[in-house]
Design a protein around this nucleic acid. Sequence first.
DNA 1: TCTTTATTTGTAATTCTTATAATCTATTCT
DNA 2: AGAATAGATTATAAGAATTACAAATAAAGA
Lengths: 145, 145
Amino acid sequence: MASASLQEAVSVLKSTNVRMTPQRHAILEFLHSSMSHPTADDIYKSLEERFPNMSVATVYNNLRVFKDAGIVKELTYGDSSSRFDCVTSDHYHVICNDCGKIVDFHYPGLDEVETLAEHVTGFDIEDHRMEIYGTCPECTKMSKQ
Amino acid sequence: MASASLQEAVSVLKSTNVRMTPQRHAILEFLHSSMSHPTADDIYKSLEERFPNMSVATVYNNLRVFKDAGIVKELTYGDSSSRFDCVTSDHYHVICNDCGKIVDFHYPGLDEVETLAEHVTGFDIEDHRMEIYGTCPECTKMSKQ
DNA sequence: TCTTTATTTGTAATTCTTATAATCTATTCT
DNA sequence: AGAATAGATTATAAGAATTACAAATAAAGA
Ligand SMILES: [Mn+2]
Ligand SMILES: [Mn+2]
Ligand SMILES: [Zn+2]
Ligand SMILES: [Zn+2]
């Protein structure tokens, strides 16, 4: 459940000297309740009713704190703003070219790719990233109408 | 050779109604002579002696023209500025976490990943991107000293 | 050469993100 | 509990990358 891993995230933070504030907890909560890999601005907007005075800097600050603590991953896609994922176990993402939707995709790691890259380039390979792009079922349905 | 594909690129542009200007040719030339996947600013700086009055907007404008014509690919890595690749045939990139160097890496397409993603998510998959990260031989040598 | 229209240039605007300093508050110490 | 400490929040300015815009320029064809 999301609430279980939220509790885990809170205790990870408490184990370092990170204080628990209402804003911080709300950001964590939103991340764990959302499956949509939100942007900093998504988070900011979703909390502006509960925290009318919250600064967008607070969102960014906390996302960095979470990243440093290893409880959140940042997904960077270049052209637009970063997205944040509270699922830190290894997985890939399938992204819709039309609406931008991001869906988790589990696949065994591409070890042989890393091994070959190491042999061919002489690099000491540490990891890789992969995203798969296409059109989601909803957008396909739309375009057929 | 680079000059052969440069000629190709020029004729692709001429086949649409894209005019050949000195600035445009110089940007193309630099892209084809460089193996380093330069940023817009790299290109701009490399040409400021030959074209002291060139605007950085011209570099961006032309990179977009090249992209639209299919003779240049944009590589987006999120945190920093885009890089541009005049090798448009399919290949992957190995990137050094220390110095940022980008090296081409040829590998057969990951068709089975795309197929599985299609089955699992219901997306109509079009393509994917992958980058492999590690430490380049030079940086490894440095750190051992 | 003349005309048309794409292109360049200089600058302002935009977007995303970070830096800064003052204020506030969670936690600790007495 | 009350005060001290140090971390957190806020508001705002600054930064970097990129794009928009309009005026000036120049490529290509007639
Ligand atoms: Mn995910
Ligand atoms: Mn390349
Ligand atoms: Zn979609
Ligand atoms: Zn390196």
